[in-house]
Computed example of a mutant assay.
Amino acid sequence: MSRLYRVGKFLCRSYLRLFYRVEIIGKENIPNDGGVLLCSNHIHLMDPPLVGSFIKRQVCFMAKAELFEVPILKIIIPKLGAFPIRRGMSDRQALRTGLNLLKEGKMIGIFPEGTRSKTKELGEGLAGVGFFALRSDANVVPCGIIGTYRIFSKLTIVYGEPIDMVSLRQERASAEMATKKIMEGIQKILTENQKV
């Protein structure tokens, strides 16, 4: 973990603690080592800092390619471990980068819906997340963000138990099937914790 990432994590955590009532559930479900595919719902621009700031390991987020064209961000984001994905098309370079990171034992963060939900309801997941889950031996950890980003409101982030992907890998299931299973895991977290 780079010094820049540590500093950024500290600043984001401090900001989130100052302006929101943040509750973290299930940090123990994140493996301490080995490849991890962290899959979360997506409701706000602040989701990546929220998901990554309160856990020990560094999260390498897959982010939309447009962010890497913004003058300041294009310098900072890669140094934080993020890598670009071109939305609306099959981005083979992003898939290769993600697989390589997982095989190196790193944790990558993905928002399977591909964009923020305007209704706060979980949308359909894209096949790319299923591809990562099937083509690697990474632990797949579902994550749910519950609440709103209104100042001083409560935000709960729940890290679920890793999803068992063994049978789907053995059956050579489709990426769509794997994605469906992952989205069901995220939805289960959201449903069970709505009143938290």
Results as ranks from 00 to 15, higher is better:
Y15D: 00
K188N: 09
L122Q: 11
D47Q: 08
Q170T: 06
E69Q: 10
S90E: 14
H44G: 02
Q187T: 06
V158L: 08
S90R: 11
E66P: 10
T115P: 12
I108R: 03
I24N: 03
C12I: 02
L80D: 08
V7P: 04
E161S: 14
V140Y: 04
K103S: 00
F10I: 03
C12P: 07
E192H: 09
K154A: 11
L126S: 13
L99R: 08
I145P: 04
E66N: 07
I43M: 01
L95P: 07
Q187A: 08
T191A: 14
D137A: 05
P78C: 09
V196A: 14
N32V: 13
R150S: 11
E121K: 14
A138I: 00
V70T: 13
Y20N: 02
Y20D: 00
M1A: 11
L122H: 07
K79H: 14
M183G: 05
G109R: 01
L11T: 07
D33G: 12
R96I: 12
K154Y: 06
E184A: 08
I189G: 02
T148W: 01
R21P: 00
I151D: 05
G34I: 03
G130K: 02
E28N: 09
I24H: 02
A133W: 06
R116D: 07
S40D: 05
K74F: 12
R87V: 03
F68R: 03
I30S: 03
R135A: 04
K74N: 12
L4H: 09
I85S: 11
Y20Q: 02
L126M: 14
K74S: 11
I76H: 09
F111E: 00
K154D: 04
A63I: 01
S53V: 11
I75F: 09
I186H: 05
E23Q: 15
D164N: 07
L134W: 02
D91Q: 11
R87S: 06
M46W: 15
V51D: 00
L102Y: 07
G109S: 10
L102E: 02
Y20I: 10
F19M: 04
I189Y: 13
P162F: 12
I146M: 06
R57F: 09
I75G: 06
S136H: 13
S153Y: 11
L45I: 12
L101I: 02
P162Q: 12
K118E: 15
G130S: 03
I110G: 13
I151W: 04
A175Q: 13
I110F: 04
E161C: 05
M62Q: 10
I186M: 08
I30H: 03
C60M: 13
V196M: 09
K195N: 14
V196W: 10
E66L: 11
I76W: 12
L11G: 03
P162I: 10
R21L: 01
V36T: 08
H42S: 10
I24S: 01
V166E: 15
K27V: 15
I189H: 06
L11N: 06
L134P: 01
L122S: 10
K118V: 15
E28G: 02
G109K: 01
T119G: 08
L45W: 14
G34Q: 06
V70G: 05
M165Q: 08
D164A: 07
R150D: 15
Q170E: 15
E161A: 14
G35H: 03
E184W: 12
V7Q: 03
C143D: 13
A94T: 04
K180G: 09
N32W: 09
L4N: 09
I43L: 09
E121C: 08
V129Q: 03
A82L: 01
R116H: 12
V141L: 05
F10S: 09
